[in-house]
Design a protein around this nucleic acid. Sequence first.
DNA 1: GGGCGATGTGTACGAGCGTACGCAGAGTGG
DNA 2: CCACTCTGCGTACGCTCGTACACATCGCCC
Lengths: 181, 181
Amino acid sequence: MTVRRHDPDRRSRIIDVCLDLIAEVGVAGVSHRKVAAAADVPLGSMTYHFTGMDELLREAFGRFSRGVSDGFEQRMSEATDLTTARAAVVEIITRDVFGTHRDLVLTHELYTLAAREPAYRELTNAWMARSRAALERHFDPVTARMLDALIEGLTIHRALDTEAPRPETVTEAVRRITAAG
Amino acid sequence: MTVRRHDPDRRSRIIDVCLDLIAEVGVAGVSHRKVAAAADVPLGSMTYHFTGMDELLREAFGRFSRGVSDGFEQRMSEATDLTTARAAVVEIITRDVFGTHRDLVLTHELYTLAAREPAYRELTNAWMARSRAALERHFDPVTARMLDALIEGLTIHRALDTEAPRPETVTEAVRRITAAG
DNA sequence: GGGCGATGTGTACGAGCGTACGCAGAGTGG
DNA sequence: CCACTCTGCGTACGCTCGTACACATCGCCC
């Protein structure tokens, strides 16, 4: 009948496609059938590779948050002193994190899940812990914590507000937070 | 047959119940039928009072965001000088905004919708504009903007992180941001 | 009192969903 | 070349969904 396709990356590809689909239509709009169609795999593959929608979602968001964290750490590891560290934070806010609409949407979808279900909160916890750790390479723990929150807030407002904060505002905010107490 | 119940607040009650339901099971889990059952109205009332799910959701989140904004303005209007204004902001972060789990979840659900659909972004825009205006009663526009973002970030982290930022951290962050440039 | 809009409701239909499950077919040991 | 196993797939079932629509009931005006 149909050619039995032997691609060992199928499971992984399903996860990627699932993320794309979530970004497009939201967690609410995702179904086994749609993912299967988008990934060009038979419906049966869904139940074969994943015990259910929940497992798929958790793996997808795990992959996503790890990816964002990687970028964050990368960016911070390139800084060598206070000045470059500050600049790195500004870069993260204004370019990295939600550089793409996809990332923005996915982040909020994850937060929404995390707000309701503890299982997903483990993902956000790990994510935030890694962010803070990366920031603590250059700032004291308390400042790192504030910075992390500031990054979060500015990025969200940049995305959800019509008039985004101007670059100078971001730079100034980072300066104030990182100014020695 | 069934007693025709004449309550003129039915439409309004449906909206309230819808918000509760969203908080409980998420936008994804809400359906006409569930709302109808929870509000104790016949299924037909749904289509009678609302053209569709979208209208219901938009009205519900409109009511919600207006309510939160009201609280925000209230709190800020009580401040009289820099010290009390700072304290008010701290209060907002640590107690008001997402004092209840319900508010937290609803906010994220709204953000998620806003991230994808412009129609809902109008709600978040208005919300943020009002927040900023309230802050500008006590702070210059640029500082107000930063503060708004900081409030956002700290509140989210307070909700989605296992180890919430300590109260002193919040106070200190507000102090740094509002310190004269 | 009787007719008639307006208001509100019950029901039925078709679409889309997750999941279970029987079965095809490739690989392998004899 | 056969038999058996294990990977992977197609299909069908039962359910929930949004929506349309025919109909009941109320208040009002003549």
